[in-house]
């Protein structure tokens, strides 16, 4: 367990600060600016950054500053929803698998192996092409499914190692119900190893969403999404290189911040175990 009295690693604090500084405009800019992110202006195509339009405009004359934060909001919320789905089912199957063992474990893990035989992109592509419609929900569902095996594997390992501890055996010997042992005694103690996995998973989800949208199988134009914007910006590398750089930065800054948080959590978890 993570205890309050433990010192917070500086990396974690820095990561949280970076993430917060990025989230603030992501939430506020679309509300406050009053600029329609999809509004096109024929006379203002590909203008370089200047006062009033800090990041310039894209090939349709749309304001990049506003669009970047709207797009980031879209990408981050899809990623968060993906993590929720993947973590919920992954933790559930992993916990059952690791705690009860036996044939359920064998079956679930073989299934896991079969799914991981596909590279994540490939699996997501297959799922996307199977779901015929549903917009952002389709992407969330596809990516969520792709991330289930990873969470299941981490949870299974953590649950198995916690279950082997003395106090679990003690609880078992006292006749505590198995479900109660799993949810009250085992799962909370796996948090030190699950939390870092969640942060890594979130980053992978952000990059996966951006990747799928970049490929054109995620978000659809004219909606803003970092992946989609990157693919548009790439075509304009010669004429408006700042566009691509800004989108890359908007993608990497939150990922970097969450990465720092994850590393910090991992260190705290390691200390807790030592």
């Amino acid at each position: 367990m993570i205890r309050n009295k433990k010192r917070v690693p500086p990396g974690l604090a820095a990561g949280a600060a970076i993430l917060l500084l990025f989230l603030l405009p992501t939430v506020l800019v679309p509300l406050v600016s009053g600029v329609d992110p999809n509004a096109m202006q024929a006379g203002a195509k590909l203008l370089p950054p200047a006062a009033g339009r800090w990041f310039g405009t894209d090939q349709f004359g749309r304001d990049i500053f506003v669009r970047v934060f709207v797009g980031a909001g879209a990408t981050l919320s899809v990623a968060a929803a993906t993590v929720l789905i993947g973590a919920f089912f992954g933790v559930l199957t992993g916990a059952v698998s690791g705690f009860f063992g036996g044939w359920a474990d064998a079956v679930l893990m073989r299934l896991n192996d079969a799914v991981t035989a596909f590279p994540a992109v490939l699996l997501a592509l297959v799922l996307m092409s199977l779901f015929s419609s549903g917009g952002a929900g389709r992407l969330i569902l596809a990516l969520g499914v792709v991330f289930i095996p990873g969470y299941a594997r981490v949870t299974r390992g953590a649950v198995a190692s916690v279950s082997a501890r003395g106090y679990i055996a003690a609880a078992r010997s006292q006749g505590v119900r198995r479900g109660r042992i799993l949810f009250v005694h085992v799962l909370p103690n796996t948090l030190p190893s699950l939390l870092p996995a969640l942060t890594i998973g979130f980053n992978n989800a952000v990059l996966a969403e951006a990747g799928m949208s970049y490929l054109g199988v995620g978000a659809a134009p004219p909606d803003a999404s970092l992946g989609l914007m990157l693919s548009e910006a790439q075509g304009l590398l010669f004429s408006a290189p700042w566009y691509a750089l800004i989108v890359c930065a908007a993608l990497l800054i939150p990922v970097f911040g969450v990465g720092l948080i994850g590393a910090g959590l991992q260190r705290m978890g390691g200390e807790a175990r030592a």
């Binding site: 990059l207 990747g211 010669f238 750089l245 890359c248 970097f256 990465g259």
Partner: peptide, 19 residues
């Protein structure tokens, strides 16, 4: 390795090496 996925790196490399 912490941050850049291949496709972001790819765009970066096309810009630096290509443009």
């Amino acid at each position: 390795s912490m941050a850049a996925p291949p496709f972001v790196l790819g765009v970066g490399i096309s810009w630096i090496c290509g443009v």
